[in-house]
């Protein structure tokens, strides 16, 4: 049978192209537009070439924010992924407790981000917050508005509390979809619990874990609301992550050119790292 070759199919792609154009391409182009121009107000713009990109890439301030961002994302991934997996493994598979566990797990995900920030802000206050007062009562000096370590500790704890559930729910869904026959075969083959985890559960959870890591990576790399409400980037600049720094440059100092250039670099970093994660985790499949 001969295939008809014509260009009509493009017509069907048009609606989605328009949609993507309006919600992604056009806003992105305005940022690209800012990133290559200089303005002194009055809506007058001059061509600046790649000057802002060079400036951002050589800026100490950007480097520091990037390092903080990478550190934060690394820490929360190292905690949330194993912890989420462990919780999912210990949750019941059937019975009345399943729904109770699922609802409890889903709760943190339902709370608006700025509320999460506000909750932890008050919860961790050293004088009136339950957490802050308790830690101080134990004899440990803790003040997240003054000490860098305390601020980071609170920030990580908040993110773990807020987002581990997502990893749990994804892993749980993956676990319950493993057919019983696998566990039965493992029993017959005399596999120990560790072998069951290593050779059945972990391989079957591969895709789910890839998704979980990607989602948590992208989300934590763009963390803004909770962090701003909790510490506002302080003390000093200790918790000024990329998004907070970007907001300060764009709307605080109103440096549209550097902010535009930084946005694009920020976007490209996320894109590159997501690609890298995905490629590394799917490497085996290609063989």
């Amino acid at each position: 049978m001969n295939k008809t070759v014509n260009q009509k199919a493009w017509f069907f792609v048009l609606p989605v192209f328009l949609l993507v154009a309006f919600n992604a391409l056009i806003p992105l182009m305005t940022v690209v537009n800012f990133s290559v121009q200089e303005t002194f107000g009055d809506n007058v713009f001059f061509w600046a070439g790649v000057r802002w990109f060079e400036e951002v890439l050589h800026s100490e301030r950007f480097h520091a924010a990037l390092v903080r961002q990478l550190l934060f994302t690394g820490i929360i991934l190292l905690i949330e992924i194993p912890l989420g997996l462990a919780i999912a493994l210990s949750m019941p598979r059937k019975g009345p407790w399943v729904s109770v566990c699922l609802v409890l797990m889903a709760l943190p995900l339902l709370i608006p981000w700025n509320v999460v920030g506000a909750m932890w802000n008050i919860f961790a206050l050293p004088d009136i917050g339950l957490l802050g007062r308790s830690i101080n009562a134990l004899g440990i000096e803790y003040n997240y508005t003054r000490q860098i370590f305390s601020a980071w500790f609170t920030m990580v704890l908040m993110d773990v509390w807020h987002w581990t559930s997502l990893v749990v729910l994804l892993c749980y869904a993956g676990l319950v979809s493993i057919p019983d026959a696998y566990y039965q075969a493992a029993k017959v083959d005399g596999a120990r619990p560790w072998a069951v985890f290593r050779y059945i559960q972990l391989p079957k959870l591969k895709y789910v874990l890839t998704i979980a890591i990607l989602l948590r990576f992208m989300d934590s790399f763009m963390i803004y609301t909770e962090a701003v409400v909790l510490t506002g980037g302080g003390p000093g600049n200790a918790t000024t992550f990329l998004s907070i720094d970007l907001q300060k440059i764009a709307l605080g100092q109103f440096d549209l050119g550097p902010a535009g250039a930084m946005s694009i670099i920020y976007f490209l970093i996320i894109l590159f790292l997501s690609w890298l994660f995905y490629t590394l985790m799917m490497k085996d499949e290609a063989r």
């Binding site: 057919p179 696998y182 039965q184 075969a185 017959v188 050779y199 391989p203 079957k204």
Partner: peptide, 11 residues
């Protein structure tokens, strides 16, 4: 025991 659907250890 051999089951209805083949059980193999993927990795």
């Amino acid at each position: 025991q051999v089951f209805q659907f083949p059980v193999i250890y993927d990795t």
